[in-house]
Nucleic acid binder design. Structure first.
Lengths: 108, 108
DNA sequence: TTATTATATTGCAATATTACGATAAAAGAA
DNA sequence: TTCTTTTATCGTAATATTGCAATATAATAA
C-alpha cells in the first residue's frame, strides 16, 4: 500500500524512525556534514558543493528544517542556514538510547 | 525521478544513509527493540508482537538481514532471528562518528 | 506418503520519495 | 521603477517503499 501504519507503533518508535528517515539520504548527510565543517552559517553554495539542482537542495533543506535539525535566518538576499545545536543534542540522546540498547544484552 | 544519485556522494555518506534508511521505519525499530528485549533468539511471534501481516514482517526482516544487523538460524520448522552483535557494534561507531561531529563546532 | 507449520517469494495496488524545469516570491542594486 | 540574485514552490516523471493476498518452499509430524 505504501502507507506506513504509524498508529500501531509507540510514539518513541515513530520518533526514531522519523529522525532516521531524514538521515536516510546521502544528500542530507552531506548537507549536515558541510554545515558542521564550515563551522559558521552557510548560504546558497550548498548547490555548488553538493551537486544537485537548486530545487532539490531546497527540498532537502526543508526536510532538515521540518525535523528541527537546522534553522535558516534571512541575511539580505540570501538565507543563512545552520545547525540547531539544541535540537541536535536532543536528537543525539534519542538515537543513542536506541543504539545503546545492546549494552545489557546476552543474545546468541 | 525517484533515483538517489549515490555516485555523487562519498562512500561514507552513502553508508550512513543506508543504515539510517533501515532505521527509518517504525516496524524495523520495533523488531530490533523486541529482539533486544527478549534477550534470546526469537522466531515467528514477531507477527503477533508487531501487528503486521507475515509477508510484511518477512520483508522488514530481510531489510535488517541485508544490512547485517540481524542473523537467522534455522531451528526446526522455524527460524531463530537474533541481533548480529559484531555488526551492531560496527554500525554504532559509524553512526556515532556522524552524530558527534557537533563536538568541536561553534556555529551560531 | 500426506498433513501441518513456519517462513519466503511473487505480484500488485497505494503511497512516498527523489529530482528537476519552470515559475513565483522577496530583497537589494541600478 | 526595472534588473538581478537568491530561495521557495509547483508540477510532473521516474523510481522506491509499504503492505498484503496468494502462493511457494522447506522442514517436521502423522
Amino acid at each position: 500500500m505504501g502507507l506506513t501504519k504509524s498508529e500501531i507503533f509507540t510514539e518513541q518508535q515513530n520518533q526514531i524512525a522519523n529522525i532516521a528517515k531524514v538521515f536516510g539520504h546521502p544528500a542530507r548527510v552531506a548537507i549536515l556534514q558541510y554545515l558542521f565543517k564550515i563551522n559558521s552559517c552557510i548560504c546558497g553554495d550548498l548547490v555548488d558543493e553538493i551537486g544537485l539542482a537548486q530545487p532539490t537542495i531546497s527540498q532537502h533543506l526543508r526536510a532538515l528544517k521540518n525535523i528541527g535539525l537546522i534553522k535558516g535566518n534571512i541575511e539580505g538576499t540570501s538565507i543563512c542556514y545552520c545547525i540547531n545545536n539544541d535540537n541536535w543534542t536532543t536528537m543525539k540522546s534519542i538515537i543513542n538510547e536506541f543504539l545503546n540498547q545492546d549494552i545489557n544484552n546476552n543474545c546468541c
